[in-house]
């Protein structure tokens, strides 16, 4: 059910934008659009099918940890 909704909404987005992008002959736009759409589609499918996706904030936390620790010690 949820997969169905995701695929339908993704194809709906494609249906709205792709004909227009082909009409104005924006090749780069079309590529970027398709990549983003595909990325979004896969991400959604993975997430809603219970695949664990690493939290990007954990990565940011890891990156800023030295800085924040230093800062909070300073303050």
């Amino acid at each position: 059910m949820i997969n169905c909704i995701i695929v339908i909404s993704a194809s709906l987005i494609g249906y709205i934008e792709i004909p227009h992008l082909i009409k104005v002959k924006a090749k780069m736009d079309l590529i970027v659009f398709s990549l983003l759409l595909l990325f979004g589609l896969i991400l959604n499918l993975l997430y809603y099918n219970g695949v664990h996706i690493p939290n990007p904030l954990d990565f940011i936390k890891f990156l800023t940890k030295p800085l924040s620790e230093w800062l909070y010690r300073l303050l």
């Binding site: 909404s9 993704a10 987005i13 709205i16 934008e17 992008l21 104005v24 924006a26 780069m28 736009d29 079309l30 970027v32 659009f33 983003l36 759409l37 990325f39 979004g40 589609l41 991400l43 959604n44 997430y47 809603y48 996706i53 939290n55 990007p56 904030l57």
Partner: peptide, 26 residues
Amino acid sequence: LHLKEQRSVLLPLILIISVITRIISP
């Protein structure tokens, strides 16, 4: 990315953001 139109990235962004939102705040 030197795109012709800004709107072409808008709708896919909905798809991505709606799920990223869920991922980043468990």
